[in-house]
Structure formats: C-alpha cells, structure tokens
Amino acid sequence: MHSGINISQTDARPMYLQIMEQIRQRIAAGDWAAGKELPSIRALAADLRVSVITVKRAYLDLESMGVIVTRQGKGSFVAEGGPAGEIHLAQLDEHLSAAAELARHIGLSPDELAERLRRVRDKQ
C-alpha cells in the first residue's frame, strides 16, 4: 500500500507541510475524489517512515482548512462539496494573505498592494 507521497529532508519546508501540499495536489488534480478515505494516520506515518505526530499535524491542519473531514472512529475523508477549484482558491488565499502581511510590514497601503499585483500580473 503506497500513497506515492514523498518526504524530502533537504526540502526547506517542514515535513507536515510537504504532506499537506501533496495531499492537496492529489485532491486538486481530481485523483482523490470527494468522499475518498485517506490512509489512517498511523498507516501513512509507517509508509512515509515519519512520526505519527507529524502526520497528525498535517491532517489537523487540512481539517481546519476544510480540505478533509475526520469522523471519530471512522477515519478521514476528502471533504464533500469542495471541488478542485475551491482548493485552488484556498491556496491562492494563503499566498495573498502572506503578501498582505508583508505589505503591512513594509507599510504599503491596500491600494498600493493591489496596484503592484496588477503590475506583476501584466508582466507575465
């Protein structure tokens, strides 16, 4: 039973984020459909040769983002009604909130931030 998820120790991101990212990719790509059961925390930890606490952290964060639901005693499942598009939007929001925070740090107004976003997009 192989999940196909890979953990790299040279990746600067912590291991729980690598797990979250790869699960979200599978859901966004439609490989893991709504309602699909995820491997149990202990099974995935053993498969990836990482600690249980690391996988638990990834599942808890995915749950709080609404990507998966955990039913007590039953396991974790890909959330219903969360089409791939919404996951992309959630990812986008994350990047935007990081950008907004940085803008706040350097004292950029919301309008200036929006203007910079427009310029970046036009350059692509």
Partner: peptide
Amino acid sequence: LTEFTDVLRDDSRSILFSSHNTLDVERISD
C-alpha cells in the same frame, strides 16, 4: 527506521531510542 515506524502501526506499543543522528530522530520521533 522502516521497522521502527512499522511497530507504531499498533498504538499500544512504544519506542525509546537514543541517537547522535538528529536526522533520524527528527524524522521518526513524536
């Protein structure tokens, strides 16, 4: 490491291990 994490599929078991290798410890320790 594969065998160690395999043992933990059973939540009634536990492992204490000492090591100088912080890479191993970081990977498999709770």
